[in-house]
Design a protein around this nucleic acid. Structure first.
Lengths: 144, 144
DNA sequence: AGTATTCCTATTAAGTTGGTAGGAAGAGTG
DNA sequence: CACTCTTCCTACCAACTTAATAGGAATACT
């Protein structure tokens, strides 16, 4: 259960763009606003544009803007854009794991985990996260 | 949302030991039973033993056995034994992320994801997984 | 005592991820 | 057109994970 730096940076960048309120935001602004290495961020922004989540504009007054309203982009959309499948087991999507013998039951565990994660990230939009005091609609039941 | 090879192998090995029915199972048997590289598996088995989940015995008739009954070891126990914290963001545990500005809300998302995962893996025991036709007690609501 | 088998540990190679650097292409301005 | 700014793209380096190998330490049997 590892959230990669790419996924984390992508979400922070998307939130910073969303906070710009429709104006074009430059990559350099995002980088030092959220303490993200600029060159690394640029590769992530290309992924987000190719996934249809961001619009880009080159030139002197260039920058990035959301392709859809902030309440129509979910956390899951962003994660899938930069990481492929939402959950992967040893690099493969959870549904094609290929277990044999006594480990057959594991597949269902990963599918259940996948479903539980999807339930959270597909119901939380960028707009939800910009209203800070409100928490996402799942409480955390178990510690550690 | 990445399940490492280490975590996957650890669970498969624990299930194979549990299926041995109290008898000592050799590392080599586990390795070619579940198609795991032997030398890599040995390092994992050491972690599981140090975490108090496995007992080991050396010598001609040596091998590994569960330290507790299979219905008292959860999937979460195994994941924490080999991977430290259950969910990590950029290598750090989810609860110490350190977001600033517009990204503050992200912390709650990861905590919610962490809680949702824990709900699944801490309620599923090795004994549950050995009864194959039964599925873990969470249904998967959303595809992809 | 000796031997075979096994767990255990350290070292090394290959592959992926995180991060950096430089340049090519497009957009505006004079 | 020349110049500047910014996105976009490619190749490159460092660190970690995965994988494989070799040798040492402990146990059991003859």
């Amino acid at each position: 259960m590892y959230v990669s730096a790419r996924s984390d940076y992508a979400l922070r960048a998307m939130l910073a763009v969303a906070a710009g309120g429709g104006e074009l935001v430059k990559a350099a602004t995002l980088a030092n606003n959220q303490a993200i290495p600029l060159s690394f961020l640029q590769g992530i922004l290309v992924d987000l544009r190719r996934a249809g989540l961001l619009l880009s504009h080159r030139g002197t007054e260039g920058g990035y803007a959301l392709a859809r309203p902030a309440d129509e982009i979910t956390v899951g959309d962003v994660l899938r854009a930069v990481g492929g499948s939402l959950t992967t087991v040893r690099g493969l999507p959870a549904e094609r794991a290929g277990y044999q013998g006594v480990a057959s039951g594991l597949r269902d565990v990963w599918l259940a985990v996948h479903g539980a994660i999807a339930l959270v990230v597909d119901r939380t939009t960028l707009a939800d996260l910009l209203c800070v005091p409100r928490r996402p609609p799942v409480d955390d039941p178990l510690p550690s």
